[in-house]
Structure formats: structure tokens, C-alpha cells
């Protein structure tokens, strides 16, 4: 078995008619069964990477480079071939749990249908196993499971999404901003749920702007700015002794460290460096 599940090499994403580079030449790899965190500010291109990876990139964006997923390259794969991977090999946890769930279907059914149609379980068994998944995540399968998404809180809906992720046979889960809009307590429990995914043997790519999430998840991280990875390595090492001035600035800018703004000279020096290297992509971020 290959130890590296995902190997991204020189991935660039640009908008189509203008050929404006939004993500420039990003490379990183994710080891099987480990968490990997992509961290950066809003607009730095991390969500685009998740979209290119799962194949839901907007039509006017195009990706070049290679995304090797357990061997074959995903860049340039047809929609149909992509579709075969969804739910079976990879799974994208969306940002908005409430909007991602069908408003007119009981949540337990939204979990059980995955077991039923992807794992071929009998309807009754699928429902029972979905109940187990839901109660394993600390909810009542008989009470909360029978509710519709609008009756559940954001945190509960997110657990339902995680139950769905666990129900799918997919080994690779991409979580896009899993802690967006959550307070500290809920954030901690969301991180525990993600850790739970990894414990269950899934490989996790977590996309976040929250340094605490990256620290708690562990594994490797990559810090992105303006469409580029500025620094990467084991979470502890990068977060405790950052080498790049932007990473240092980002850590100082986090709420725990007094929210000190990232110094302007750091940002402008990176801008100059990239401009001289021929990229016109920084505008997306600044």
C-alpha cells in the first residue's frame, strides 16, 4: 500500500478568460491515515485547492499541474470519472452544515441512504447503523435523528455531516472550514470529531484559517498566502518555531496572542518577491 495518498505537484489554478493566476504552483503531499491542515487567510486560495481536488471547481477556473490521488492524476479527469470517486474514495465536508442537508428529509435518513446505496445495506439495517453512527457522535438517534435539519443546531447538523462522512466508504475526507462560525467550545468539539475521523482510519485534509485547529489536529501543515505555500512541515514545528516572517506574523495575529496585525513590510516584501517572479496573483489577496 502506498504511504502517500495524495500528492499535489505544481498545482496552479487560474481564471479562464483573463488567465489570472489564483493559486500558483502549489505542491504538498498527504500521508495515508494522517491529518493534513492547509492554513491561511480568507482569499488565499485554500478553498480553491479543495475544489480542484474534489472536482467542483467553477467552470471558469482551470487547474494545471498534477493531483495524484492514490496513483492516477485527477487533473483533466472528466466529470463522470470524478463522480465515481465521490462518496466512494473521497468526500468533501461542506462549509455550511444547515444548507448542505436536505431540508425535507429526516437527518437519520440522510445518513442511512449512504449506507443503503453505497454499502448495499438493507433499509432496516442501514437505518439502525445510521442510528449507531449518530449516537456515537454524542446525539440521540431516536430523538435528534428523527428531526429535520432546521430543528437542529449548527453544531448538531455538523455532526450529522460527520456521521455521513463516516458512513461513506471514502477514505479521504476534505473538511472546508469545519470551525467556521463556531464558538470556542463548539470548535473544540468539532476538532475532536475530526480527530475521530482520523482515528477511524480516514485521511483528513482540513482547510482552515484557525491556527488552534491546526495545532490540535497535528500532522503536517502548510501555511498559504496569496495563492502560494510559504511554509510547511509538522504542525508543532511550524507553529512553535516558524521560519517564514508571514507565519510568524500569522501566529502573532491570532486571538490568543493579542491579534497583532501582520506587519505591512512582511506582506509588501512578499508581494515584491512574487511580482518579480512573474506572478500577478497577489491582487486576489490584497
Amino acid at each position: 500500500m502506498n504511504e502517500i495518498l495524495l500528492n499535489i505537484n505544481n498545482l496552479s489554478i487560474s481564471s479562464m478568460p483573463e488567465h489570472k493566476t489564483l493559486v500558483g504552483s502549489v505542491s504538498f503531499s498527504v500521508r495515508r491515515g494522517e491529518p493534513f491542515t492547509l492554513i491561511g487567510e480568507t482569499g488565499c486560495g485554500k478553498t480553491l485547492i479543495a475544489q480542484a481536488l474534489t472536482g467542483v471547481l467553477a467552470k471558469d477556473l482551470s487547474a494545471t499541474g498534477s493531483i495524484e490521488f492514490d496513483g492516477p492524476n485527477l487533473v483533466g479527469l472528466s466529470g463522470k470519472e470524478r463522480r465515481k470517486l465521490w462518496g466512494r474514495r473521497m468526500f468533501l465536508l461542506p462549509q455550511e452544515p444547515r444548507l448542505a442537508l436536505n431540508p425535507t428529509m429526516r437527518v437519520i435518513k440522510q445518513v442511512s441512504e449512504v449506507l443503503r446505496y453505497l454499502r448495499g445495506q438493507q433499509p432496516k439495517n442501514a437505518l439502525k447503523n445510521a442510528g449507531t453512527l449518530i449516537s456515537d457522535l454524542g446525539m440521540s438517534s431516536s430523538r435528534d435523528g428523527r428531526h429535520y435539519p432546521f430543528r437542529l443546531s449548527g453544531g448538531m447538523n455538523q455532526r450529522i455531516l460527520l456521521a455521513i462522512a463516516l458512513a461513506t466508504p471514502a477514505e479521504f475526507i476534505v473538511a472546508d472550514e469545519p470551525t467556521k462560525g463556531l464558538d470556542a467550545d463548539l470548535r473544540d468539539s468539532a476538532v475532536r470529531l475530526l480527530q475521530n475521523l482520523v482515528e477511524q482510519g480516514k485521511t483528513l485534509l482540513c482547510i482552515t484559517h484557525d491556527l488552534a485547529v491546526a495545532r490540535d489536529l497535528g500532522g503536517n501543515i502548510a501555511v498559504m498566502y496569496g495563492g502560494y505555500i510559504v511554509e510547511s512541515g509538522p504542525a508543532e514545528k511550524v507553529l512553535d518555531s516558524p521560519v517564514h516572517p508571514y507565519t510568524q506574523g500569522l501566529i502573532k495575529a491570532s486571538p490568543e496572542n493579542g491579534m497583532e496585525p501582520i506587519p505591512e513590510h512582511v506582506l509588501s516584501s512578499m508581494k515584491t518577491a512574487w511580482n518579480s517572479s512573474g506572478s500577478r496573483q497577489m491582487e486576489a489577496c490584497l
Partner: peptide, 26 residues
């Protein structure tokens, strides 16, 4: 166009299943 419809696809359901299970009733 709804997010939950896209998500139903991401779950790995076949297109007909997505339409029947998540489209028609809504």
C-alpha cells in the same frame, strides 16, 4: 442549484437517486 443537492452528489448517490430523493419533494 441548492447546496444540499450538490452535497447529495458528493455523498456518492447516483444522479437519478439524487433527483428522486432530494429533488422532487423539494
Amino acid at each position: 442549484g441548492a447546496l444540499f443537492y450538490q452535497f447529495a452528489r458528493m455523498k456518492g448517490l447516483a444522479e437519478a437517486r439524487v433527483l428522486l430523493g432530494h429533488g422532487i419533494k423539494n
